[in-house]
Design a protein around this nucleic acid. Structure first.
Lengths: 156, 156
DNA sequence: TTGCATACCATATTTTCCCATGTTATATAA
DNA sequence: TTATATAACATGGGAAAATATGGTATGCAA
């Protein structure tokens, strides 16, 4: 397989969640994980009723950044690491490509028997179908309304 | 088992502590210790009523950083390292995956029969359940309030 | 010996792994 | 292009392994 240059979570995939919390990770996502020899990490979104996921490498980078930027005994660092790493968990997938979501995550995202995977580039989200439908509509409306201010030069 | 690239303590795990102070180390944590052929080190948190733990390697890194630091003669850092290294102790786990916490540590964290392990990336903490519940609420409120200024570059 | 700490054993429960099957997507040949 | 073969994927169920946790035995030291 040719090595790719970019690794982005994309597309929107709907999969079943069984009674054990098992759900197939979209095959495109699995390909990324395999190629980078890493793992998926998931945690509750801080701001939305959904599960958020990323590659373990990203959290490792975060851990290193915090070690280097804030001093060893910083209170702020303490709070942040507790919140992020206390909630995150690795989710290795089995030979059939499934991960087992925890009760905590499913409850936070109000997911019962169906999950919607939504690509976000370096991250992805997992939603309850109805919630995602509303959220997507909201986002579309929001983006259209603010369109002029999204031009690259006006960012940051 | 494929060698992993990253070693992070994550997730929040609740385990029983028996009359002897025995408690199962979360299996994810044990996997890291085994894979790196190292040991867990625990000490009383300097700032919170909890036990703090990490890999022995990290304390070694701390010692090295102190040697190389411009603050080599800093009274504060000197005091802090005294406190940590004076308090730290290795905690090997037995064949069933348990460590035996000392009376000193349990008392400091006000732990009796239940312990909450909270991942912090390179470190982890062990809390009394009620205290952790309050602490988590405090952190969430604090982080949400200051969120913009806490975003480390591209993350969160 | 007695007290204490460590190592060993037993078991219920949880989690992971493996197999089977229907379905979808992709490739190949007519 | 269309039909057919092949491979990849999603998903359900059950077997096997790992985990958490209580209890007992063993060794060492006071």
């Amino acid at each position: 397989m040719a090595l790719r240059k970019t690794f982005l979570f994309m597309d929107t995939i709907i999969n079943k969640v069984d009674a054990k919390g098992r759900v197939s990770l979209p095959s495109d996502y699995r390909a990324i994980v395999k190629e980078l020899s890493t793992e998926i990490v998931c945690y509750r979104s801080l701001t939305s009723p959904c599960i958020e996921g990323c590659l373990e490498d990203l959290l490792d980078k975060l851990a290193t950044d915090m070690e280097n930027s804030l001093d060893f005994f910083s209170q702020t660092q303490d709070d942040l690491t507790n919140l992020i790493f206390g909630d995150a968990k690795r989710f290795p997938f089995d030979s059939t490509g499934r991960i087992v979501l925890t009760e905590k995550l499913l409850k936070h995202a109000q997911i019962t028997d169906t999950a919607v995977f939504v690509g976000k580039g370096r991250k992805f989200q997992v939603w309850n179908p109805e919630n995602w439908e509303k959220e997507e509509a909201r986002i579309r409306a929001e983006v259209l309304k603010n369109r002029p201010s999204l031009a690259p030069k006006e960012n940051v």
